[in-house]
Structures are given as C-alpha cells and as structure tokens.
C-alpha cells in the first residue's frame, strides 16, 4: 500500500472565458498522505476549492483540467486515474471512495426530504443491497457516531435541525458509504467557536478510529494548527509551501506563510507582534510577473519579480516555492 492516497500530478485547471482564460490552479503537485489530515490553506480565490474538486471531477463550469492528472491509490491496492474514469465508474467513485462535506450544510441537504429518506436514497443509488432493518441500523450507527440523538434526528427535516446538527448530519452522510477520503470544504465557517471545537474533535476521532484520510480546506490558520497533520499553503493558484504542521509553523520559512501566521491574532501571547500582510490579494487575471507573491513580499529581490521560482523539494517530502531558498548563497543578495 502506498503512503500517498491521493497524488495531484502537475495539475493545471483553466476557466476559459469569452476573451481570456483564467488559470485557477497552476502546475500543482501535491500528495495527500494516507490516514492523515492534510489542510489546504489559502484566501478566497487561491484555488483551493478548485484543486480539491478536481479529485472528484466536479470542477464548477466551465473549468477544465488543462494539464496533469489525479491519481487515487485505493486502500485495496488498486490505482485509479480520476481523469480517465467513465461516467458510471465516476459515480461509484464519488462517495464510495471520496466523499465531501460542504461549507453550507443547509443548502447541501434537500429541504423536502427527511434525513432518513436522503440516506436511503444514496444507499439505493449506489446499488447497496440491504434489507430495511440493515439500512436503518447502518444509518443509526453513523448518526450515533457523530453524537446525534439518532432515533430523533433520522426522521427530521433539515429545517428542524440547528446549524451544528446539520453539519454533523452532513458528516454522517459523508461516512455513509465508508469512503477512504473525505474532502472538508470550510466545514465550520458558518458555525460558532464551541460548535467548531466539537465538530473538529469529532472529525479527528473519525480520522483516527476509521482511518479515513482527510483533505481540509480552510482560510483559518488557527484551525490548521490545532487540527491538521500536514499543511499546504496556497496563493494565486500555486502551492507555496507544503510540510508537516509542526515544521511549517516552527520554521515559518515562506514569507507568505509567515505573513499569514503573523496576521492571525490569538487569544494567548503578545498581540503587538501581530501585523497584516501589505497589499491586496492577487487578481487572478493580472498576476505579478515572476513570483506571484512578489508584489506583497517584504523580502522580494529583483529575481522574484522576473522569474517564477522552482519548487525546492526536501528529503521528508516537504517543499517550498521561493527564491530565498533557491540557488544557495550567490542568489542571496
């Protein structure tokens, strides 16, 4: 069994428009480790949602994968090239191998169906032959697992549930077909802090006990610090830095990662060290020449404004995309 459950290989995703083409994701290579939680961090428009939706091939219209491929190494040892799946195979691939928890739980659930109806429908759709009792037992079990009052909740309509409960129903829903990977798209953005804490504890438990790998998209770096194992920082459609959470937070190598961590106020420690990143988020249609972060980077050198940096891989699989760490001493001035 390979260590990486998902491998994004040189993926570029384009959005062809009438007059121009928007490249939302540019030549990204990234591995998602089996059984771990990998966080994709980035601001709006950094391409994190686009990248992760390429894993279940549901990039929003009119986006297309221009280059590269997504490889899925299933737990049973088979190797799946997501790009080459046929329609029918894709349908079973989604949810049976990779499922997703959406940001807006309220709009992801069908308002006119009860939780039970929606769960059963998905089971039927995927051709899982179970008796009525088995189905009910399965649904109740996963609802119990997400710490909901399963007997009551299963016959509720979505509007009868609170925001936190809906999000937990969504998590249960994503577990329904025993997937190997769950994509979490800002799962707690609309929820308050205490609910967020519970949801992440729950997800971590699922990750540990069921050995499900997770791909978490978020803009909140504090969540990543307390929850994820690996972090990939995205900016302007590129992954700027990737590594284990401990290493990345300890070293704060990439200027953007550093800026992002420094721009996040905390409830402990000194607040005087906190400062924003200058400038404004990149316009994807008019990216700076050279390194995409060069116009906001306090350490930018001449070469940063001319040439896009190569990716520097380290032995432990982590990488960084920045001129400051390329080419050694002679480039350092």
């Amino acid at each position: 069994m390979k260590e990486n459950i998902v491998e994004f290989k040189n993926i570029s995703i384009d959005y062809p428009m009438k007059k121009y083409t928007l490249r939302a994701v540019n030549n990204v290579s990234l591995n998602v480790k089996r059984g771990k939680i990998t966080a994709l961090v980035g601001e709006s428009g950094s391409g994190k949602t686009t990248l992760s939706s390429s894993l279940i091939r549901c990039i929003s219209e009119p986006g297309i994968i221009a280059e590269g491929e997504v490889i899925f190494n299933s737990n049973d040892g088979s190797l799946i090239n997501v790009e080459k799946l046929k329609e029918k195979e894709l349908r079973s691939f989604r949810w049976e191998k990779v499922s997703m928890v959406f940001q807006a739980a309220q709009s992801a659930l069908n308002p006119v169906l009860t939780v039970r109806q929606q769960f059963y429908e998905t089971l039927d759709e995927h051709g899982i032959k179970l008796t009525k009792e088995e189905k009910e037992a399965k649904c109740l079990k996963i609802l119990d697992f997400v710490k909901l009052d399963s007997k009551r909740v299963i016959d509720c309509y979505p509007h009868e549930l609170s925001g936190g409960m809906k999000q937990r129903v969504m998590i249960a829903f994503s577990l329904l077909l025993d997937p190997e990977v769950i994509i979490l798209d800002e799962p707690t953005t609309a929820l308050d802090v205490i609910t967020q804490h519970y949801i992440f504890n729950l997800l971590k438990e699922i990750n540990k006990t069921m050995n499900i790998s997770m791909l978490l998209m978020t803009h909140d770096i504090s969540v990543v610090a307390s929850f994820a194992d690996y972090i990939a920082v995205m900016y302007g459609g590129r992954v700027m830095e990737y590594g284990s959470v401990e290493e990345v937070f300890k070293n704060k190598l990439h200027p953007y990662t550093k800026g992002l961590i420094n721009a996040t106020p905390s409830i402990i420690g000194n607040i005087d060290d906190v400062r924003p990143i200058d400038g404004r988020p990149p316009n994807m249609l008019d990216l700076p020449k050279g390194c995409v972060f060069s116009d906001r980077c306090p350490f930018a050198k001449d070469i940063c404004k001319e040439k896009e940096p190569e990716t520097l891989y380290k032995e432990d699989g982590s990488f960084i995309k920045c001129h400051l760490f390329l080419g050694g001493e002679d480039n350092g001035k």
């Binding site: 992440f200 504090s222 969540v223 610090a225 307390s226 929850f227 300890k250 996040t264 905390s266 402990i268």
Partner: peptide, 13 residues
C-alpha cells in the same frame, strides 16, 4: 468553555 474552544495558531499549544 468559550475561551478554551478558541483555536490557537500554534501546533505546540
């Protein structure tokens, strides 16, 4: 509870 639930941007915390 509220104070404890707030995530801290430091993995060592």
């Amino acid at each position: 509870a509220l104070v404890q639930a707030v995530p801290v941007p430091d993995p060592t915390y």
